[in-house]
Write a protein that binds this DNA or RNA. Structure first.
Lengths: 225, 225
DNA sequence: GTTTTTGCACTGACCAGTCAGTTCAAAACT
DNA sequence: AGTTTTGAACTGACTGGTCAGTGCAAAAAC
């Protein structure tokens, strides 16, 4: 057994800090561009068909790349998928956190923060519907290789919501009887399912429209006339 | 081409009312027992691993049956899965509808009906967690053979919620500004995600506990002290 | 001249679906 | 009663195909 080559391990890395726009910087950019193409190809295929039903040949073809290139860039099919998950949830978490922080900066209430996060969630799902689909499909599975990755990454996202709830309880804006983790889950679920149904069954509706409906539900303005 | 055998089409049928025990009557009870075992084996395996990653051999083995028996009872792997879906969502829909009707009979309000349905949903998920997982994982996929089955079956379940909302709007209990389909989706999502997270991450909590938290959210008793 | 990509042939494992044959309990017959 | 027949239910070895991952020489990009 000799070491061979295979340098999948670490790569230039840009991931974490998203959207540094691009251009400039001489970093190993070609590599990164290929990886990006592979992510995009994989995300839609896996969202449609599931992980196991999607072949590496399909991914390569859709990305316009040779099969060998996939394995030059990723150690295996499941590693590609895991990195895709990390990448995507990173974007979501950042977006939620930013929405919460902006509201705080502008002196909004915690309900305003939740509302802003609902909107941020909708915007994310609107922009990356395939990723969202795939994430939901995998989230509650057990016995899969990437289970732990998924858990970590889920907790990061939910934690942002929990933080806002906890702060709201602390400053008296929310009842101290609410169950923070469960309420956070429920809110995430509300947005997730409503948004996916929106995308699947009434894609013609505007984001504002959907946001308004969810906002009303959040603020308990359902009952009463 | 002669007809051959293969009688997958119609079968004695007992489904709904399980456990007619055995003995007596020459009725095809054996068949139904085998199918039930296959459903049970398939539902957990597919929930854990996904449809494509689950092999027919595994299903047969877990059910304690030979592979050929699977094909004697179902035309194909995906037909088995489709019938499983129909079976499961049938149970859910019936349970939701019953909860709503009972509330109406007892002269409860529409909010009470929604609350009863939330509880019914939780009870269902508590009893059939694997089925729920699998259902969520498949619901928003596209390009799959059972797409249409899934849509029909989804609509049946959501329609029960929509009906209650619509009645509530009609009798003035709910604002006529609410968006019925979207609110229904959001409510379903709230329960679904909260329940799955409950099962996955805090299984020690009681159903009443979880129900109370969701109830509070439904009634907008989150804000305020 | 080093890194990355290509193209393509190849392997070995795995898997959906088939089919000839077996089991067995309830009829049918004696 | 006992014996034979029937056929639905079940079995498991087998087949044909698919797919993840490999190997490598040559080209392209930087």
């Amino acid at each position: 057994m000799i070491a061979k080559k295979a340098l999948h391990g670490r790569v230039p890395v840009t991931i974490g800090a998203m959207e540094s726009s691009s251009t400039t910087s001489g970093g190993g950019t070609r590599r990164e561009a290929t990886r990006q193409k592979l992510y995009e190809a994989a995300v839609t295929l896996i969202a449609e068909q599931g992980f196991s039903a999607t072949t590496v040949d399909e991914i390569a073809e859709r990305a316009g790349v040779a099969k060998g290139t996939v394995y030059y860039n990723f150690a295996s099919k499941s590693v590609l998928f895991e990195e895709l998950l990390r990448h995507g949830v990173g974007l979501l978490t950042a977006s939620l956190r930013e929405a919460a922080e902006k509201t705080a900066r502008d002196g909004g209430s915690k309900v305003d923060a939740l509302d802003a996060m609902i909107r941020a969630g909708l915007v994310f799902i609107d922009r990356y519907p395939a990723f969202t689909q795939l994430y939901v499909a995998e989230l509650w599975r057990t016995n899969r290789a990437w289970q732990s990755t998924l858990m970590v990454v889920r907790q990061q996202a939910v934690a942002v919501v929990e933080d806002v709830l906890r702060e709201g309880v602390h400053n008296g804006e929310f009842s101290d009887e609410i169950d923070v983790p469960l309420t956070a889950s429920a809110l995430v679920g509300m947005v997730l399912v409503a948004a996916l149904d929106w995308q699947s069954f009434q894609p013609e509706r505007s984001l504002d429209d959907v946001h308004a409906a969810l906002s009303r539900l959040l603020q308990g303005r359902v009952s009463g006339r």
